[in-house]
Design a binder for these strands. Sequence first.
DNA 1: CGCTTTCTTGACGTTAACGTAAGCGTAAGT
DNA 2: ACTTACGCTTACGTTAACGTCAAGAAAGCG
Lengths: 143, 143
Amino acid sequence: MNTTSCEVKPSATERCGCYTISDLAKEFEVTPRALRLYEESGLLEPQRDGQKRIYSERDRVRLRLIIRGKRIGCSLAEVKELFDMYDSSPGESGQIKRLLEKLDERRQALELQRSELALSLADIEQIEQRALETLRELENKGH
Amino acid sequence: MNTTSCEVKPSATERCGCYTISDLAKEFEVTPRALRLYEESGLLEPQRDGQKRIYSERDRVRLRLIIRGKRIGCSLAEVKELFDMYDSSPGESGQIKRLLEKLDERRQALELQRSELALSLADIEQIEQRALETLRELENKGH
DNA sequence: CGCTTTCTTGACGTTAACGTAAGCGTAAGT
DNA sequence: ACTTACGCTTACGTTAACGTCAAGAAAGCG
Ligand SMILES: [Zn+2]
Ligand SMILES: [Zn+2]
Ligand SMILES: [Zn+2]
Ligand SMILES: [Zn+2]
């Protein structure tokens, strides 16, 4: 951010660690609308300078996690579930164990995905081979 | 199917290769509604006995492919695209080349997915390790 | 001062892939 | 003949994750 309205008043040489909504939107190639949605879904909690949202470094880290989660097929609700557990766990060993269970669930899902993905790649290879054969036959006929 | 209304009149010892909508629905654990949607989307073309749909072995094979496609994140539209190309290609070398291109596209997408999936698994491992450490510390304090 | 940009809060629109009836016909069992 | 099961079409409902306006507030600029 680094504007006059920024509370932090950093030195000239270093960034203050504040981001506007479009700062993060550009950096992560998402729209401001998406960021507001993530907030509405309880995934981000930016501070306010008047009405304007001010995102901290922590928000930025979380946003990275959200996007990573989305890319592996997690819904926003699932991401929130993980965030909540991770937030509330420090201290409670029960929560940590539940977190570990959730992680195991997700890992199993991922490994299932991986094996199906391998099958699909094999399928593609097979179709490709047959298509290549057909192509060669066609070219031989051409002579 | 193997009913009196079946056109095929197979011998008693072998199945005729006809399936009702609920036959396939049960076998693949999808609803009849889904099968009708796949038909509406141009992915299945069952014959009719009056109004009733009669699915052939070919339809069954396609259904398997549809489901496999869905599980790796293909939309119905993408599946249809592949079906169409695969159907129209026999003979046309141009079509075959386009098919090969499409296959390459999909493989690239799959391999991207695979690498992101690997990253995610690594992430999970890391969080798991930290959680386990925290857990051990808590248990040590308990004594 | 007006102009432009960037932000805000609604609120409604969109797409995919079905779910969920409503209302009716047909077939099999008893 | 009555019931139960299954199937059909038509059509509206649902969820997720945004997109797309509209209308207005604050702030920098010449
Ligand atoms: Zn700042
Ligand atoms: Zn190959
Ligand atoms: Zn039959
Ligand atoms: Zn481990």
